[in-house]
């Protein structure tokens, strides 16, 4: 029921606070945390509000990559012209999350650590090969976002560990990415199936590719077998169609209130086809966001 509230302003204070607490919930945007608390799905003894920690904010551009603070909101991502150009799938995914109200306060870090299988930014981050910086009192390490998820609602983060920033490789020449989402309506929708593709082309061939999908497994997943097959293939509608068929056979989604498993399979196929098509078009077009 009631909880104690902490609002550390620095990472140091944060880790000291976390160390002092037996049980806590981190509050970033809170758009999931507060709902779970209201629905009595969680009962934190302490809520640690991390919104004051400057080190977890801002979008910085490094050579060939972006460093995105875990507290960066989805709105900030959609307002970034650089992310739109060089991390297009993430830009698109962020714009598909919830509503404007949600995007104004919900954070990318929160979207990841919730570990929802349907999180919109997750497939984009997987396809872009993003890394999460895990920080604790004892130090900092990096892990692929793809390796962060251990199950629905579960990550490999241990007590006292937080994600401070996300590193997203920037797409360059001959590279493009795209995010595709199927929801039950055009806003305020949780994905029935979502997915993203990142592609590097060499002439009319696929040089490298990454495909990720959400809401078809307990966690967002990479479709490695299809990626393997796609490398070296010709850029053609038939190639994408074959990849789509492979995806439909590969994924083992569940039936729930949003969809039947069978229909999710149908959508998985379309997600792959459309994400690949769009990513390839962007890779060819020079302008990554075209």
């Amino acid at each position: 029921m009631p909880f104690v509230y902490h609002a550390p302003r620095t990472l140091e204070n944060l880790f000291a606070t976390l160390d002092s607490l037996e049980q806590y919930s981190l509050l970033a945007g809170g758009t999931d945390l507060i709902v779970k608390w209201k629905e009595k799905l969680i009962d934190p003894k302490a809520v640690v509000d991390i919104n004051g920690i400057a080190a977890m904010k801002g979008i910085e551009e490094c050579p060939h990559c972006f460093s995105i603070g875990a507290l960066v909101t989805h709105y900030e991502i959609t307002a970034s012209a650089r992310l739109r150009a060089a991390a297009t799938a993430l830009y698109e995914a962020a714009g598909e999350v919830g509503s404007p109200q949600i995007r104004h306060i919900a954070t990318i870090g929160g979207n990841i650590v919730n570990a929802s299988p349907a999180a919109d930014t997750a497939p984009a981050l997987l396809a872009l090969n993003a890394e999460a910086e895990i920080q604790s009192r004892t130090g900092i390490s990096a892990i692929l976002v793809a390796d962060l998820f251990t199950g629905t609602g579960r990550t490999c983060l241990k007590p006292g560990q937080i994600i401070s920033r996300i590193k997203v490789p920037a797409s360059g020449q001959n590279q493009g990415s795209a995010f595709v989402k199927f929801g039950k309506r055009k806003a305020l929708a949780i994905a029935v199936v979502n997915g993203a593709a990142w592609i590097t082309i060499d002439g009319d061939k696929i040089k490298d590719v990454r495909l990720a999908m959400g809401a078809v497994a307990p966690t967002p997943i990479r479709l490695l077998a299809i990626e393997d097959w796609l490398r070296g293939q010709t850029l053609a509608a038939s190639t994408f169609k074959t990849a789509g068929t492979m995806a439909e056979k590969l994924v083992r989604p569940i039936s729930d209130i949003r969809s039947s498993a069978e229909y999710r399979g149908d959508l998985a196929r379309q997600v792959v086809i459309r994400a690949l098509e769009t990513a390839a078009r962007r890779a060819k077009g020079g302008c990554a966001c075209g």
Partner: peptide, 9 residues
């Protein structure tokens, strides 16, 4: 910015 006041402490 527009936000949901029901989700903000």
């Amino acid at each position: 910015k527009n936000v949901n006041s029901c989700l903000l402490l």
